[in-house]
């Protein structure tokens, strides 16, 4: 997104952070859990063993030798490294389930006029045809109800309003107060040079909801990256230019061997999409 359009699309950046995101942010700070206390002790013992390998050995009545001292030094280093990794949440026990907003941007060129692409996008009920995380969008005037699919058959629903609507130029939206999710997005359209259609810049920001839904949301969005909305935009381009979302079909062998392959066709889950 160009700096100019970015600033246009981000009135919500200045908004005070929501309480639930502050709560999520706190979980990365040190907490006195038994695991953390043990890990801290591990770092201490490990480091002291590296500095003076025979300190512990003497205390335990082990005889001094050069080989033993190097072995103790090495084991101390390993202990310190492993413990510090546990302390920093490296093994996942203390890692924050969610650590703040997700801000995503991507762009693409579509060989259609700005008015054509604007008109398709402006009807939000079209969005689920190319945005993988959306199930349905129902439009009622300036407002709309968006439904996303979450793991374990959970659904996330929010209501959004238009905040800007400039035909053939820009559309912006944000969630209404009281939604399960705080999100805002914007898409800008401008003519591509050389009669190549329209340059589209998309920006999406999500703030995670609280509670059980928040955890599900976090699982869903942890790996959500610009590559995912790039895949969304690619499907949008395919729809606009060819009238369909490109589908290679399955290789028969994949049906036989029960594999599904990475065609991020419409309705693909959000976990895929990034090339792996």
């Amino acid at each position: 997104m160009s700096p100019e359009s970015l600033s246009d699309v981000s009135p919500i950046h200045s908004r005070k952070p929501r309480r639930q995101s502050e709560l999520f942010a706190q979980t990365v700070e040190f907490k006195h859990t038994p695991v953390n206390t043990l890990a801290l002790l591990g770092v201490g013992v490990g480091l002291s063993q590296v500095v003076d390998p025979m300190l512990l050995a003497r205390a335990m009545g082990i005889k001094q030798s050069r080989a033993r001292s190097w072995a103790l030094r090495a084991s101390g280093l390993v202990l310190a490294l492993v413990s510090s990794r546990a302390l920093s949440g490296g093994f996942g026990r203390t890692r924050a389930p969610w650590s703040g907003n997700v801000h995503l941007t991507s762009s693409i060129t579509v060989a259609k006029s700005p008015m054509e692409v604007y008109s398709y996008w402006r009807d939000f009920s079209n969005l689920p045809r190319f945005m993988a995380h959306l199930q349905t969008v129902t439009v009622e005037g300036e407002q709309s109800t968006w439904r996303a699919r979450l793991p374990a058959n959970m659904q996330l629903e929010w209501r959004a309003e238009l905040t800007a609507d400039m035909p053939a130029e820009r559309i912006m939206w944000r969630t209404l107060e009281g939604s399960q999710l705080v999100s805002h997005g914007g898409v800008s359209f401008r003519p591509a040079p050389g009669n190549r259609g329209t340059e589209i810049h998309l920006s999406l920001t999500f703030e995670p909801p609280a509670g059980r839904l928040g955890r599900a949301f976090a699982t869903l969005f942890r790996n959500y990256s610009n590559a995912h909305i790039q895949a969304d935009l690619r499907r949008f381009k395919q729809l606009m230019e060819t009238g369909e979302v490109t589908d290679a079909g399955n290789q028969p062998a994949e049906i036989q061997f029960g594999r599904s392959h990475g065609n991020a066709g419409h309705g693909a889950s959000m976990q895929e999409g990034r090339a792996s």
Partner: peptide, 13 residues
Amino acid sequence: CENSNPNAALAEE
């Protein structure tokens, strides 16, 4: 063709 490779992200890498 910009639309016929559904695994375009893979090729882009």
